[in-house]
């Protein structure tokens, strides 16, 4: 159940792991544009090679990437069916009765699929090589400009990191409550809609009450350790840009430039 929650972090050491999370996040944003702009296969080929290189340098294994594609397969088939039925341009590839499959239907679908696969690979790459906490710090850094309008970036980042830290705890709690309710005869799998709703309620009500209790106790624990909201604190985690981070962002921007180039000239 843990795997479902967040793109899972793989705790190993690699070039991608050592990159500054901010560089990886900026890189991802740049690459999103690089992936969605071009209409030429050359651009996809170039980006595809880059993504592959990044995956290899991250040492996370192709298997995990393929796994992350799995949920998309149904969507891809659906996309193909819709395109086959609606797109009526290009060459006719074959006909079956009144139905004709056009080449553009196939091309359009392939384009979308390639884009999706590249996107999924890149986001999986980010979450697999970056600790949730580091990602939070990177997001906090990106939100920094909002502090001008008194946006509490630090507090929001702390909130997000605490939420992330409690996800496994709450999942554990959910399983425990479900088992407790099952042992009292609550059936979560069978029954009609109304009985299902009432059985879900028997899960949600205690879950919420426990979560609030946890929140109060955590607030006490934080206060007891000297936390004052909004007060100055030193930072244990400090992100530092290295040469490799600039190198990584440079490559991403180069990829974007290339895909803009192919969009205009090819």
């Amino acid at each position: 159940m843990n795997n479902l929650v967040f793109g899972k972090y793989i705790p190993i050491d690699s070039f991608m792991h050592r990159l500054d999370p901010r560089a990886k996040l900026i890189g991802l944003f740049v690459m999103i544009f690089a992936i969605f702009l071009p209409k030429s296969w050359w651009a996809f080929l170039a980006i595809g090679v880059l993504v592959l290189l990044a995956l290899i340098s991250a040492k996370i294994g192709i298997r995990m990437i393929v796994q992350s594609f799995k949920p998309m397969i149904m969507m891809m088939i659906f996309l193909l069916v819709i395109n086959a039925l609606t797109v009526k341009t290009g060459d006719i590839l074959f006909t079956y009765g009144t139905f004709a499959l056009y080449s553009d239907a196939l091309y359009n679908t392939l384009f979308v699929i390639v884009r999706l696969l590249l996107m999924i690979s890149l986001t999986t790459l980010l979450t697999a090589t970056t600790k949730p906490l580091d990602l939070t710090l990177a997001i906090e850094w990106l939100l920094k400009p909002l502090e001008i309008v008194k946006f509490p970036t630090y507090e929001v980042a702390l909130m997000v990191s605490i939420a992330l830290r409690f996800i496994p705890t709450i999942i554990e709690e959910t399983i425990r409550i479900m088992n407790a309710q099952k042992s009292r005869g609550v059936d979560f799998e069978n029954g009609n809609l109304s009985s299902k709703i009432s059985s879900i309620l028997s899960l949600i009500v205690p879950l919420f009450s426990v979560a609030f209790e946890r929140a109060y106790e955590l607030a006490d624990a934080m206060e007891a350790r000297g936390y004052v909201p909004g007060a100055e604190r030193t930072r244990y985690h400090i992100l530092r840009f290295h040469l490799r981070d600039f190198f990584y962002i440079f490559i991403c921007i180069a990829a974007l430039a290339f895909s803009i180039f192919t969009r205009i000239y090819l």
Binding site: S161, L164, R165, L218, A221, R225, G226, Y236
Partner: peptide
């Protein structure tokens, strides 16, 4: 409070 043992010990020190 922290996401690892290290971070949790650091929390009070940061405060």
């Amino acid at each position: 409070i922290g996401s690892t043992v290290r971070d949790d010990i650091a929390f009070g020190l940061e405060n």
